[in-house]
Design a protein around this nucleic acid. Structure first.
Lengths: 357, 357
DNA sequence: TAATAATCTGTAATCGATTGCCCAAAAAAA
DNA sequence: TTTTTTTGGGCAATCGATTACAGATTATTA
């Protein structure tokens, strides 16, 4: 077992007195090789513990069978779940996934893209960072003839497929749910409006208010970072107003958590006085003593579909650029933080909606 | 920008009427090339938008600049943080990280290893799965002359470096802490004892009991899976005993959470009647209404050190096998779930011990 | 039996970059 | 001026696998 030297097709060809071409063909199960020699070669290859050199193959074919995934953070349940979805779908096809994080910083995003492009990746999946405005660096990917698929956070670019959530609908159903709980003064914590996902959630919220004839109050909309503390201070701010909200729809779970902590500190009862709903269905929302309602984004499915879209693109006619926009359905998980009706009953064991853990 | 064809050193050599060798040398800043031609070539390369082909390079050098990381799950804060640590350390050295998950299944582990080995990785970082007993498949990595570094969960193998936590100490300090809170009947939820980390935590627990003259009660030790529910049912089981515990040291945070939920359901006050401490410092432990004490494993540092160990190994004498065992210090974060003294005061803002989020 | 078709297998170029070895030309020394 | 040394750069092999094209057998058909 101490054979440092890997066996190559040449070693096999020498041993069997055939040409390397024959060996290569046999290993690739070419119909041009008689089954007799094929068997012999396969057998010898196994004996000699032959492993094909993917590099040589890649060099010849121009394909590496590696794809890159670029996300803001890897240790966010949502993103790691999407990645898992991509992997599950792509691994059976022989692909490996290289993961990069931007930490929400465009400069990192550029670096990562360059690094991936020169490692000769076969495709890139990405969720753009908050600070991404220009798309020049993204265009470079396309100029390089590398397929690009956006998921969740996208930019408008021709020729790029995307898999996203219907965030408008997400915002709408949350708001509608809150209205049906009897809430009339619904505040909204929005994320960075540079990102479509947040503008869409915001628009959904406004649309629902309008449909139910509730006056939109701009004072009740606060733009927050995705930190827990930001949720708490947003509550402080809101409760300085003459007209305090009776519900909070937060575009992120962490803010919702911070808000709840602050509300509790102020002895405000949830959901009796104020209902709270988050977004993303991060695992902790379910674990809390007061479980937090949230919108599930089916990250696993999002990843799988992104992978499928990529495969289609790879296998399709190379000449034509087909772009495909898949929009997934959000699912509102109503938990105690916003469920006034259920309060009397003992909480029912929730059906596991695994998007992680 | 629509040049499908990537420019190669040959393109440059043709344009400048020099040989490809010269171009290659110039690009690699070889001293054999005059600075005049070097400048010219560099300039032309930039103009022609030359990108070196990593595959060709890799084929020639036998190195891919890719490393693999194998973990049970990617969407566990602990693991994703370790990965982040590895990346941060390795990216500046030009490496890319390929991530694989085993879902705690040896068979997947074997597949992933094979896949990585035949993509010609330069090294493998791994945390073995619960179900890994034999080490044959791991030995294959070494036979393949690929550096292997264990982190957190390791197997005893000669020639393999590892970066782990001092789990014995972790178990000890938790137990000691509980004893100092006045607890005398400390239960222990252990993980799969096939893994060293859990036996070590267990041993640390027993050692502390012994040092403080507390009789070890085997009935108070329960082996649980890492699910939340497992923590709850363990409590049920323990509270059937005549002699109920007054503290729980859980080897995992999820079980600790489950235990707390069940204790609350039984109206048992925490920490007054029962203290609870978890292990891993998962983000949610800090967020809970009743924050859970836990042991931080400094995953980011663990990843960085693992990467350093790898780099040393790569750059060292290839002939000698040096194995290095780094053991990190656990840090107990005392929170309300086990802090009887602090109960009267207002909780002090905790210093951010970022291991994620 | 001869001609044609079908079936295997080999030759050599190719994918880009690297590098040991050799050879000019220029500079330095004699 | 001649010899030696230095400097700068080219040639060609190499990393391993793939594949178009050609050539050699064997089988089939006329």
């Amino acid at each position: 077992m101490k054979d440092k030297e890997k066996t190559t097709i040449y070693d096999i060809s020498k041993k069997l007195n055939v040409s390397a071409a024959t060996v290569s063909r046999a290993l690739n199960n070419s119909p041009k090789i008689s089954s007799a020699t094929k068997d012999l070669i396969l057998k010898t290859a196994k004996e000699m513990n032959y492993k094909q050199n993917r590099l040589a193959q890649a060099l010849k074919s121009g394909r590496t069978n590696n794809v890159g995934v670029i996300v803001p953070y890897i240790n966010r349940n949502f993103f790691s779940s999407v990645i898992r979805g991509i992997e599950e779908e792509l691994t059976p096809h022989g692909y490996h996934v290289i993961i990069c994080q931007t930490h929400e910083n465009v400069e990192n995003e550029k670096k990562q893209i360059n690094a991936l492009l020169d490692t000769q990746i076969d495709g890139i999946f990405m969720s753009v960072s908050k600070t991404t405005r220009q798309t020049d660096h993204l265009q470079k990917i396309l100029d390089n003839n590398t397929p690009l698929v956006f998921f969740d956070r996208k930019k408008e670019m021709t020729g790029v497929s995307s898999v996203t959530l219907d965030d408008f609908k997400g915002g709408y159903i949350v708001t509608e749910h809150l209205i049906k709980q009897g809430c009339k003064k619904i505040a909204h914590f929005s994320g960075d409006l540079n990102l479509e996902i947040y503008t869409n959630r915001y628009e959904g919220y406004k649309a629902a208010l309008k449909d139910y004839d509730i006056t939109f109050n701009p004072d009740h909309v606060i733009q927050v970072s995705s930190k827990i503390e930001a949720g708490a201070s947003a509550v402080e701010e809101l409760w300085k107003l003459d007209d305090c909200p009776d519900a909070i729809f937060s575009a992120g779970d962490h803010n919702a958590l911070g808000a709840i902590q602050e509300l509790k500190r102020r002895k405000i009862r949830i959901p009796e006085e104020v209902c709270v709903v988050g977004f993303s269905n991060e695992p902790f929302t379910k674990y809390m003593e007061l479980p937090i309602s949230s919108v599930d984004q089916t990250p696993l499915v999002m990843g799988q579909i992104a992978a499928e879209v990529f495969l289609e693109q790879i296998n399709g006619k190379k000449s034509r650029t087909i772009e495909k926009k898949v929009v997934l359905n959000p699912e509102l998980l109503i938990r105690n933080s916003s469920d006034r009706k259920k309060q009397v009953q003992k909480p029912v064991a929730e059906k596991a909606k695994t998007s992680g853990v």
